Amino acid sequence: MGAMLRFKKETGKEVTEITTDNFSDLCTYLYCCVASASAADKVPFDMPLMDFADALSAEDMENWAKAMQAGAAKNGEAEKKR
C-alpha cells in the first residue's frame, strides 16, 4: 500500500492510471515499490528517483513490467474463481 501512496505523492496520479507504454510512470512506480519494501523491511534506501532510474536497464524494466502483468493476470483469474 505504501508504494501506491508514494506513487500518488510523487506523480499526483493513482497507480490505476499507469499504462504499459508510459515508461516514466512505470519507472516511478518501481522506485516506489522498492522504497516501500525497504521501509517495511527496515532497510535503508536513500537513493533519489533519478539515480534509481539511471541504475536501471531497459531489460530490468521489461522484466519487471512482465512480472507485474503476469501477477495482474493471475489475480484476475483468482477473482473469477471466487
Results as ranks from 00 to 15, higher is better:
residue 43 V to C: 09
residue 18 I to C: 05
residue 19 T to H: 07
residue 35 A to F: 00
residue 4 M to V: 08
residue 20 T to G: 10
residue 57 S to A: 04
residue 56 L to R: 15
residue 55 A to S: 15
residue 37 A to E: 11
residue 74 K to Y: 04
residue 45 F to L: 04
residue 47 M to G: 01
residue 53 A to F: 03
residue 28 T to V: 11
residue 16 T to I: 07
residue 66 K to G: 02
residue 19 T to F: 02
residue 48 P to R: 12
residue 62 E to H: 12
residue 29 Y to E: 04
residue 15 V to K: 04
residue 22 N to L: 01
residue 14 E to H: 06
residue 35 A to C: 12
residue 11 T to F: 03
residue 75 N to M: 13
residue 16 T to G: 15
residue 58 A to E: 12
residue 13 K to G: 00
residue 42 K to F: 02
residue 41 D to T: 07
residue 47 M to I: 15
residue 37 A to C: 03
residue 13 K to L: 06
residue 33 C to W: 04
residue 71 G to T: 06
residue 74 K to Q: 13
residue 50 M to A: 11
residue 55 A to C: 05
residue 9 K to A: 12
residue 31 Y to F: 15
residue 56 L to W: 02
residue 26 L to Q: 14
residue 45 F to M: 06
residue 59 E to G: 05
residue 13 K to N: 12
residue 49 L to M: 09
residue 82 R to Q: 12
residue 40 A to H: 09
residue 58 A to L: 11
residue 50 M to Y: 02
residue 30 L to H: 15
residue 23 F to S: 11
residue 74 K to T: 14
residue 35 A to R: 11
residue 17 E to N: 07
residue 63 N to D: 15
residue 52 F to T: 09
residue 6 R to S: 10
residue 56 L to G: 04
residue 6 R to M: 07
residue 58 A to V: 14
residue 75 N to D: 13
residue 35 A to G: 03
residue 51 D to W: 01
residue 43 V to W: 00
residue 24 S to F: 00
residue 7 F to S: 08
residue 65 A to Y: 03
residue 19 T to K: 08
residue 76 G to D: 05
residue 16 T to Q: 03
residue 6 R to N: 13
residue 64 W to H: 11
residue 3 A to L: 05
residue 12 G to Y: 11
residue 62 E to A: 14
residue 12 G to A: 02
residue 30 L to V: 01
residue 47 M to V: 15
residue 25 D to A: 02
residue 13 K to W: 03
residue 27 C to Q: 08
residue 23 F to C: 03
residue 41 D to G: 13
residue 74 K to W: 00
residue 71 G to N: 15
residue 22 N to D: 14
residue 58 A to Y: 08
residue 49 L to E: 11
residue 16 T to F: 01
residue 5 L to S: 14
residue 33 C to S: 13
residue 13 K to M: 05
residue 6 R to G: 06
residue 70 A to D: 10
residue 8 K to T: 12
residue 47 M to W: 01
residue 59 E to R: 15
residue 18 I to A: 06
residue 41 D to L: 14
